[in-house]
Amino acid sequence: MKFGFLMREIGQGLSRNVSMIVSIILVTFLSLTFVGTAGLLQAQIGQMKTYWYDKAQVAIYLCTDTSPADACPQGEASSDVKATVEAALKDAALTPFVERYYFEDHQAAYDKFQEQFADNAVAKYVKKEQLNETYWVKVKDPNKSAVIVESFTGVAGVEEVRDQRSYLDQIFSILNAASIAAVGIAAIMLASAVLLISTTIRLSAFSRRREIGIMRLVGASNFYIQLPFILEGVVAATIGSVLASGAVVAIVVFFVQGYLAQRLPLTSFVGVDDALLLMPLIIGSGVVLAAIASGFAIRRYLKI
């Protein structure tokens, strides 16, 4: 196959359907930007999980006099209760799961509450007896925190056992849903990109039907006849996917690092390296998609 011939054919094809080619570029650009954003969200979730799961603890809230009666029929937890809990935490059955734990009494809980709700009216009315005494347990393996939760749930004098991870999981499931939505939108747009590519190929084949007819008669191979059309779709989609990967990097640089990371300095965000990792994935999927779509279209509309 001669390169010059191929380039000329593709060039002619591209210039003949400029508006269709531009729409292929735009649609692949938008859809792959969505794919890339979904990828970034997943990377962000992964990053936050490793960061926050590491800090998450299990809280064993002991009963107070103001606790609901069905959980705490005896009222304020006695020192016997504390001894039982402490003994269980030190017991050989649980030590493999517990990294460390500490006890937070009414005073400490009150101090923490005052600090957290300093600007809130509720801080004035709360009494320290109303705040639970708590055992804070740091587990060795965050995935096995359920062992602790199960061991202390329902124990007399324990009001509630709470894994902080359950709060985090709510946040992550929201982020997850967002990334799934992005993928869903991307899928719809990718489908329209595929349809657009095949329509463009059909138009392109129609506008070159004389040439194709002659190529067939003089014995040009199928490959030779079809390749310019396939490459036409691939070139357009490649431009779109390069733009998309550029957009993903720009999102990280200007929005995530330039805006979010400035506002929320304590949270770790995805970086440019994550975006660069996504780049070959985005471009690759754009090219493969276009090749498949145009290959399929050409087989349908160009019977040899």
Binding site: M1, K2, G4, F5, E211, I214, Y224
Partner: peptide, 11 residues
């Protein structure tokens, strides 16, 4: 020339 180009003849 076109009929030769498309069957891959050299220039």
């Amino acid at each position: 020339a076109f009929s030769l180009e498309v069957i891959g003849k050299s220039s």
